Amino acid sequence: MPALRIEGYVIVSADGMLANASNVMPDDLKFEGDKQFFTAALDRADLILHGRNSFEDQPNSPRRKRLILTRKVRAIAPDPSNPNATLWNPAGASFEAVCEQAGIRAGTVAVIGGPFVFGMFMDRYDVFWLSQAPHVRLPDGEPCFPGVPARSPQQVLASHGLRAGQPQMLDPAADVTVTPWRRT
């Protein structure tokens, strides 16, 4: 199979959470600069990969080819509600098989969550784009990765062979940055 470039994207609170205790991304974690960065990245991606609770809800969302992880199918199935989506149960089919089924043989796969999905690809990311909102706290929220909050998101990424690059400012008023974590 030709090379797929796998990139991850998440914005987290100061305590490493991607959603509140109700498993909802609160408005406090939404910033225009991060939204623009995320939208542009997904517009460039050949395939979006996420769990059943993650979705970007953007104007181009219905046109994007996607894989949705779910246990509701045995292996691979078309999504009856979205002709651009394929449902995938990793217990029944490999990532390579589902990409082949979806018609993706090369290009960029954007992994957008949730925590279980991010964890599945920790040893395969070419780059993980970690956006941080340092003034937002989400007590009892949904951790971005398996192992958080016992370890920080940065410690989790580093433990999987990724190294931080130069952060980019996305929202100066809120100190929101994005840091690329690249495989060494």
Rank of each mutant, 00 (worst) to 15 (best):
I112T: 12
L162V: 04
F38T: 06
F128L: 04
D28M: 15
V156Q: 04
K65V: 00
R183Q: 14
A45V: 05
E32F: 13
F118S: 02
L42I: 08
R151Q: 12
V12C: 15
V178P: 02
A110W: 05
A93P: 12
D46S: 15
G141F: 12
T39Q: 06
M122R: 05
D175E: 09
R151V: 02
S131R: 01
V148A: 09
F118V: 01
P153T: 03
V98P: 14
V12K: 09
E7W: 03
L49H: 00
N53I: 03
Q132I: 10
G33F: 15
S159F: 08
C144R: 00
A75G: 09
I112M: 10
E7R: 09
R182Q: 14
F121N: 01
A45P: 02
P80C: 11
L67N: 08
V156F: 09
V109W: 09
P143H: 04
F128Y: 09
D126C: 10
G103S: 10
A45T: 02
M120D: 00
G33E: 02
N53M: 08
R151N: 06
R71F: 04
R182G: 13
S152C: 12
I6R: 11
T70L: 11
S13W: 12
D27Y: 06
F31Q: 00
D15I: 04
L162Y: 10
A14T: 03
P83T: 00
K35Q: 07
F55Q: 09
A174P: 00
D34Q: 03
E142F: 03
E142A: 14
T184N: 15
F55N: 10
C144V: 12
G16S: 07
S61E: 09
R151C: 10
G141K: 06
D175I: 00
V111T: 06
A14M: 13
W88Q: 08
M169W: 02
V127N: 03
T39S: 15
K72I: 00
D34F: 08
G16M: 08
R64E: 00
R163F: 15
A102F: 12
G113L: 04
Q168L: 13
K35D: 00
R124V: 01
T70D: 10
V73K: 13
D175V: 00
D27T: 07
A3V: 05
A110N: 05
T108Y: 11
M25C: 14
R124E: 02
V127H: 05
